[in-house]
């Protein structure tokens, strides 16, 4: 399935990338989406992203919710007029017969307050199952996008369940004779314990501050790309603290505000460095 998507989007002209090296709560946060969607340069990219959402863990007991799962992320910037047709054709490339199913685009607007980002789009339904999140970005890091990118985030477990006719992700065939459950269920159990019970609140709280300080320092040094990694670490640390129940509702808004401020700083610095590079190149 992944290979089919890779081939399809590579043929279209996307740069194929590999997953990012730090914990992300969504493929959108990968700098290949977040940073590259800013600025005036066209950019087409596709990659698998493992997403980590501590709060969604269920100790491997709930067959529909996990703290770790996979997305396939495609960004076309700017979105061509035929972008929806390209997307539908990608489903056909996966072997889905669009005429025999009930395919629908159902309003679902996207907002990520920690990144100061929002866009309008849909969830794509295939016989009522949400298989893709579809978004036209409008703002990232608090800045209007110059060229409007289209982001397609395929939910790989959901898609696989649909294609394999399985009722739960546990039963998915990962490789011949090996199920998704065989590969990930124990990890779900252990990570859920870590996220909800063991993660050290004091250490995480301290780290959040350190990442934040490092981000500021890197921004002052004119290094927006490494600075962005610190934003990602802050965001993940915040999610862990949230899962540990260590953040009250009032503190929550303050934490989100801190991450958003960093994200904005990074977006601003990144846009500046893009302009400088353009000047140098000229």
């Amino acid at each position: 399935m992944i290979i089919a998507l890779e081939r399809y989007w590579a043929d279209y002209g996307c740069v194929l990338m590999q997953p990012y090296h730090t914990e992300l709560a969504a493929g959108t946060m990968n700098p290949n989406t977040f940073l590259r969607s800013l600025g005036p340069h066209p950019w087409n990219v596709a990659y698998v992203e493992p997403v980590i959402r501590p709060l969604d863990g269920r100790y491997g007991e709930n067959p529909f919710r996990f703290q770790h799962y996979f997305q396939y992320q495609v960004v076309l910037k700017p979105a061509p007029a035929s972008v929806l047709d390209l997307y539908w054709a990608s489903l056909e490339a996966l072997g889905i017969d669009l005429r025999s199913h009930d395919m629908r685009l159902v309003e679902d607007d996207w907002e990520q307050p920690t990144l100061g980002a929002w866009g309008l789009g849909w969830e794509v339904w295939c016989d009522g199952m949400e298989i893709t999140q579809w978004t036209y970005f409008q703002q990232l890091g608090g800045f209007d996008v110059e060229l409007v990118p289209a982001e397609m985030t395929y939910g790989l477990e959901r898609l696989a369940m649909f294609l394999q006719g399985k009722r739960t992700a546990f039963e998915l065939e990962w490789a011949p004779g090996i199920t998704w459950g065989d590969v990930y269920r124990e990890a779900e159990r252990e990570w859920s314990r870590y996220n909800f019970e063991e993660a050290p609140v004091d250490v995480l709280t301290r780290r959040f501050g350190e990442y934040e300080a490092e981000c500021r320092h890197l921004l002052e040094s004119g290094l927006p790309i490494p600075a962005y990694d610190q934003v990602l670490k802050c965001s993940h640390t915040f999610n862990l603290l949230d899962a540990r129940g260590a953040i009250s509702v009032t503190e929550r808004a303050a934490y989100i505000g801190r991450v958003r401020k960093l994200a904005r700083g990074v977006a601003e610095a990144y846009l500046e460095s893009q302009e400088e590079n353009a000047v140098t190149a000229a």
Binding site: S100, R104, D127, M129
Partner: peptide
Amino acid sequence: VVANGGQPDVVSAGHTQVLEA
């Protein structure tokens, strides 16, 4: 279920599975 197309038996089975999940 109000669908927008597709083969009724396939679509109905799909929606049932989603609701059951």
